[in-house]
Design a protein around this nucleic acid. Structure first.
Length: 904
RNA sequence: GCCGCCGUGGUGGAAUUGGUAGACACGUUGGACUUAAAAUCCAAUGGAGCUUAAAACUCCGUGCCGGUUCGAGUCCGGCCGGCGGUACCA
């Protein structure tokens, strides 16, 4: 072996790390500072890794390796979120048990991850489908149940006939299933729910203390959707047959109460039956029927045209005793607020539209707009008008004050009260699937009863038919022997719960299991938990912004409340890696005759045939690309990687061709971690060339041993034969400083750039001192660990061989690298020293009227001497010429940077 | 519609947070080595002008328009474009 051959050195070190358990985390070392760095839980799909996975994993691996060298006790684990639909669907198709598929996929993922050289502690691997793991998932469910946070409800759910399961709201996108894109309908079913709404306020408040991207926090805030306002009770018109009923509404605008001219109930509202008059009965029933059939898609997106019918009933506006009609309309949702609204068409766009359509009155109660033309909704600037009764007036008050005054009055009169509402709903927690955690629940006499803790885990029955039933009964219902059981406490007949938990369950607490994966007395060893929590850095994709991160926070808070964990929040710092897109593509469009037509502004060439062009066939014209030599605009962009587009990059292929170090390096060199970036094979080639240069920096390609330029820096007794010169030390220490600071700031791309600059310089040296190369290898090692280990070993062998030959005594300073097969993973991280960074001279840019006209060098010790520096600046020929143009009226002097002469 | 993020060479991206725009890398062009190719190395590379050529010099240039400042990629106001999230939430 003489050239850089990653296929030789990478498996060697991967084997070494694994066999020596190099990265096993030591729990008994708790006096040292800890660093818990976590990757988002992967689902081991049959497709294997895509290049998006190693992006975040490389970032965390660099930090893990760096922190170890900095003396931290590092926890860097990995495991498998292995329950889930794909394995089950595969089982239905092929009859292969999901367990088998899952284990195969896990083996594949593990192999791929190990081939990338990640420094995980493989002794802490967890697997959500392992009974020793889900035993504790079930245990947590029991705790939720004990806390009154888990309950059964008959709720309309998103039933997907194709998948044979219900889906959470979050799994339904535009009325279709997120997985597979199948139609979803609403159907009432018995379901387990988790009362996440009980934690809404805390989930919102505690976001403040988290070091997360603002965008993610904002998304969670929106999802929780806190609104402050008032609940107001509108009695029904007295004297009518339907009297004694009242309608409670939630409003964020109690200041507009005097403008309420009608009311609307959601079609499903239970009051509808009781208040509808006989004359209106048929119209109301018909409307309710159509509304019921509408999918979520119909009720929201495209259908902005509001519909509704009058119930025949009237309610009384409590602030002015006006009788106002009560309608039903599907623009009011049963699931939000009270399922009923007071309509203020003057100051709400939806109500305005509805009132216009059905000829309902519109009254202005907030000054500032023209309510005959559109609703005036400004709630900051507006001033209330037409809003007074015998007891209270909010006229002339700005909206915020008016809200307060009228709410106080309502409370005094017991007509309403201050209220807070959240968009967040309880979490639908059951699925009609086989491949999930069974609930630790039995039903006795039709009532749910939790199993005692010592009956955990409840394992899945062995089955070979995983097909869901047409009725929505889960596949587990077919396992009659399993289903029919006895109550362990009373011995009475009982049936098991046949729903299973959703995939989110296992990923809600996995970060705790890593801490003590073999602990048998609870989900996590409390002593270890206190040491390791919270997670210091959590890296993953933004697609989990709301769901996983909100659910995990919810469970964590429950565990905190029962004393199982010591922190209020699980993930202190969160970073989202940006998506990696496919290679840049140029697309031209042809009409039916094969003639090229320009892509329009947004690049869509609808109705035309698209032709993929090579980069050499296009050129830049203005701010777009055209077919070379023509005016035909082509579409130039990168697309999300997808099988159908055929632009998916397989990490295995990249590793086979360029090695894991090159893949790692490229993923980091592409750009900032958080940013969306297009893939480029030529870019991989570029970092591969860099690694080859590093190899040649130390190795001789002909002989396959350390090259002359390096060997010459070592004497036969192993001591240094030459002192590194000041230029060498300067660039080394500059590089150490830059790389250290950039790793700390997660700026891996510029850290790599600094390593490249060092290498380019060092390649020019005739003698390359080992004392300079060794620190360089150490700071390279988090990025390209295999190459760094290999070269570290080679340098060790070099000095060892020389010492042995000479028979000289061992020099302590070179003790460490003398032993072959010794890892550099725990070598101390090199420190930079300021004294080597000093310059002999400083460069100033000299500007005249803000334009750079010259550069001057001044001795470093006089660089802050303003008069001295300005004098040199004035005498610079180029600067001087520009100074001649007028009088200097001002001189700006920024030490060590810039001088600006203002001339008139 | 609303919320959030982002617009810098042919490309990915740098720029110590107001101080020499384009680091590093890709690509391209020219050259060296080679019988040849690969690999490697060297040089040039934002645009325009001036010049026989080079050096030197001048002007323009960080999506667009304006502002603050001795000085703006960076700060402020207004637009345009892209990406992500969300949507009858009362």
């Amino acid at each position: 072996m003489s050239e850089y051959k990653p296929e030789n050195i990478e498996p060697k070190w991967q084997k070494f790390w694994l066999e020596n358990k190099t990265f096993r985390t030591d729990d008994n070392n708790r006096d040292r500072p800890k660093y818990y760095v976590l990757d988002m839980f992967p689902y081991p799909s049959s497709a294997g890794l895509h290049v998006g996975h190693p992006e975040g994993y490389t970032a965390t691996d660099i930090l893990a390796r760096y922190k170890r060298m900095k003396g931290f006790n590092v926890l860097h684990p990995i495991g498998w979120d292995a329950f889930g639909l794909p394995a089950e669907q595969y089982a239905i198709k092929t009859g292969t048990h999901p367990c088998e598929t899952t284990n195969q996929n896990i083996d594949g993922f593990r192999r791929q991850l190990q081939a990338l050289g990640f420094s995980y502690d493989w002794d802490r691997e967890v697997n959500t489908t392992d009974p020793d793991y889900f035993r504790w998932t079930q245990w947590i469910f029991l705790k939720l149940y004990e806390q009154g946070l888990a309950y059964e409800a008959n709720v309309p759910v998103n039933w997907c006939p194709e998948l044979g399961t219900v889906l959470a709201n979050e799994e339904v996108i535009d009325g279709k299933s997120e997985v597979g894109g199948f139609p979803v309908e609403r159907k009432p079913m018995r379901q387990w729910m988790l009362k996440i709404t009980a934690y809404a306020e805390r989930l919102l408040e505690d976001l403040e203390e988290l070091d997360w991207p603002e965008s993610i926090k904002e998304m969670q805030r929106n999802w929780i959707g806190k609104s402050v306002g008032a609940n107001v009770v509108f009695p029904l018109k007295s004297g009518s047959a339907k009297a004694r009923e009242s309608i409670e509404v939630f409003t964020t605008r109690p200041d507009t109460l005097f403008g309420a001219t009608y009311m609307v109930l959601a079609p499903e509202h239970p009051l509808v039956d009781r208040i509808t008059t006989d004359e209106q009965q048929s119209a109301v029933s018909a409307y309710r029927e159509t509304a019921e059939k509408k999918t979520d898609l119909d009720r929201t997106d495209l259908n902005k045209d509001k519909t509704g019918v009058f119930t025949g009933a009237f309610a009384v506006n409590p602030v002015n005793n006006e009788e106002i009609p009560v309608w039903i309309a599907d623009y009011v949702m049963m699931s939000y607020g009270t399922g009923a609204i007071m309509a203020v068409p003057g100051h709400d766009e939806r109500d305005w539209e509805f009132a216009r359509k059905y000829g309902l009155p519109i009254i202005e109660v907030v000054k500032g707009g023209d309510v005959t033309k559109e609703a005036y909704v400004d709630s900051e600037e507006g001033i209330c008008v037409n809003s007074a009764n015998d007891e209270v007036t909010i006229n002339d008050l700005p909206v915020p004050d008016a809200k307060r005054v009228i709410t106080e009055w309502l409370e005094r009169k017991k007509l309403g009260k201050y209220a807070v509402t959240y968009k967040l709903r309880d979490w639908l927690f059951s699925r009609q699937r086989y491949w999930g955690e069974p609930f630790p629940v039995i039903h006795v006499d039709g009532k749910p009863k939790p199993l005692p803790e010592d009956h955990l885990p409840v394992t899945l029955p062995d089955m070979d038919d995983f097909e869901p039933t047409k009725t929505g009964e889960p596949p587990l219902a077919k396992a009659t022997e399993w289903v029919n059981t006895t109550d362990p406490e009373t011995g009475r007949p009982a049936v098991r719960e046949t729903n299973t938990m959703p995939q989110w369950a296992g990923s809600c607490w996995y970060y705790l299991r890593y801490i003590s994966p073999d602990y048998e007395l609870g989900p996590v060893d409390p002593e270890m938990e206190k040491y390791w929590m919270p997670v210091d850095l959590y890296v993953g994709g933004a697609e989990h912004a709301v769901l996983h991160l909100l659910y995990a926070r919810f469970w964590h808070k429950v565990l905190y409340d029962i004393g199982a964990v010591s922190t209020k929040e699980p993930f202190q710092r969160l970073v989202n890696q940006g998506m990696i897109l496919g290679e840049l593509e140029f697309t031209a469009f042809q009409d039916a005759d094969g003639k090229y037509v320009s892509a329009d502004r947004n690049g869509t060439g609808e109705g035309f045939d698209s032709v993929r062009l090579e980069e050499k066939d296009v050129e830049k014209r203005g701010d777009r690309f055209v077919i070379r030599g023509t005016d035909t605009v082509v579409d130039a962009r990168s697309f999300k990687m997808s099988k159908s587009r055929g632009n998916v990059i397989n990490p295995d292929d990249v590793v086979a061709q360029y090695g894991a170090d090159a893949l790692r390096l490229y993923e980091m060199f592409m750009g900032p971690l958080e940013q969306v970036k297009p893939w480029s094979m030529q870019g991989v080639e570029g970092v591969y060339r860099f690694l080859k240069r590093v190899w040649r920096l130390i190795m001789d390609e002909g002989s396959g041993s350390v090259n002359e330029a390096v060997a010459r820096s070592v004497n036969s007794d192993g001591s240094a034969s030459v002192e590194p010169d000041s230029i060498q030390l300067k660039i080394l220490h500059e590089t150490i400083k830059k790389v250290t600071e950039d790793i700390e700031g997660h700026r891996f791309n510029t850290a790599i750039s600094a390593l490249m600059i060092f290498t380019n310089e060092a390649m020019k040296w005739q003698v390359r001192p080992v004392e300079v190369l060794k620190p360089f290898l150490l700071i390279l090692s988090p990025f390209a660990p295999h190459l760094a280990e290999e070269l570290w070993e080679k340098l060790g062998e070099l000095t060892r061989a020389m010492v042995q030959e000479s028979g000289n005594p061992v020099d302590d300073s070179i003790e460490k690298p003398r032993r072959p097969n010794r890892t550099l993973a725990y070598e101390p991280w090199p420190a930079y020293e300021e004294e080597f960074l000093k310059d002999d001279s400083k460069t100033y840019a000299v500007q005249v009227n803000g334009k750079v006209r010259g550069q001057i060098e001044v001795p470093a010790d006089r660089a802050s001497d303003k008069d001295f520096v300005l004098d040199i600046a004035r005498n610079d020929t180029s600067v001087n010429r520009h100074l001649q143009k007028g009088q200097v009226v001002k001189e700006i002097f920024v030490p060590n940077r810039v001088i600006n002469f203002v001339v008139k």
